Amino acid sequence: MTDTSDREIVVARVIAAPRERVFEAFTEERHLSQWWGPEGFTTTTRSFVFAVGGVWEFTMRGLDGVEYPEWIVWEEIARPERITLLHGEHEGDPNAFTTVLSFTTDGAATRVELRTLFPRKALRDEAAEKYHAVEGGNQTLAGLDAYVTAAAS
């Protein structure tokens, strides 16, 4: 087995909601647009199909007004345990990375883990240093947490 740790970013969070509810927040654009992305970012969807081979095309806008085109293809959907996706700026992006989202029951809560694998170490380092991917990943999971727990109240 090849060690890929130099190309990975892993973030996780335990969310006080059932696994099915947490998983559901990934399945429809109306949910994702409410919580996806780091603090202060907005998400505008151009197209969305949640199915294996389906695509989510969207734009994220930062607080500074900078827009980031995004493209995701859903590669695996195993309800409610796992989602695997390929994420880049556009279809065919040579720098696209793979993320495996795992949803594990933790008592009455759900542990969500995002394990992102970049094609090259330099891309992982750039994501971490220039784009603050670890902090952004943690903020994204915090947004998911706030969204699904507020939906329960």
Rank of each mutant, 00 (worst) to 15 (best):
E89M: 14
A122I: 02
T105N: 12
G143S: 08
G137H: 07
V66W: 05
F48Q: 12
E76Y: 00
L123W: 02
V73A: 08
G65S: 05
E70C: 14
A96N: 03
L85H: 12
P80F: 06
W74Y: 15
F97A: 02
G143T: 06
N138P: 01
R111W: 01
A122N: 03
Y131L: 13
A127H: 06
E129F: 01
R79C: 08
T44E: 14
G137F: 09
F50G: 10
G143K: 05
V112T: 10
F103C: 09
K121A: 11
R61W: 00
A51D: 14
A122M: 04
A142I: 05
L117G: 03
A152K: 04
L86T: 14
H87A: 02
D145A: 11
T99R: 04
A142Y: 02
G88V: 06
G54C: 12
V112M: 06
G62D: 13
L144Y: 01
A128H: 08
T84S: 09
D145G: 07
A133Y: 03
T116E: 05
I77D: 10
E81Q: 15
T140D: 12
P119V: 03
N95M: 03
A133Q: 09
T140N: 15
Y68M: 13
T149A: 06
T116L: 01
G62R: 11
M60W: 04
A128C: 13
T140K: 03
T84R: 15
V73D: 06
K130G: 00
V134K: 14
G62H: 13
G137M: 05
L123C: 03
V112K: 09
W74L: 12
D125T: 02
T98D: 00
T110K: 14
S47R: 12
R111E: 10
R120T: 05
F118P: 00
R46M: 11
T104L: 10
V148R: 08
A150P: 04
V148F: 10
A151H: 01
I83E: 01
D64W: 06
T104N: 07
F48S: 11
F97K: 01
F118C: 00
I72F: 04
P94K: 07
D125C: 00
L123V: 03
A108I: 04
V100K: 04
G107A: 06
V148L: 09
V55L: 12
K121C: 00
E113A: 14
D93Y: 13
E126L: 04
D64S: 14
G92A: 11
N95T: 00
E89H: 07
I72K: 03
A150N: 14
T104S: 11
N95W: 02
F58I: 03
E75V: 07
T44H: 07
T104V: 14
V66L: 10
V73N: 02
R79V: 14
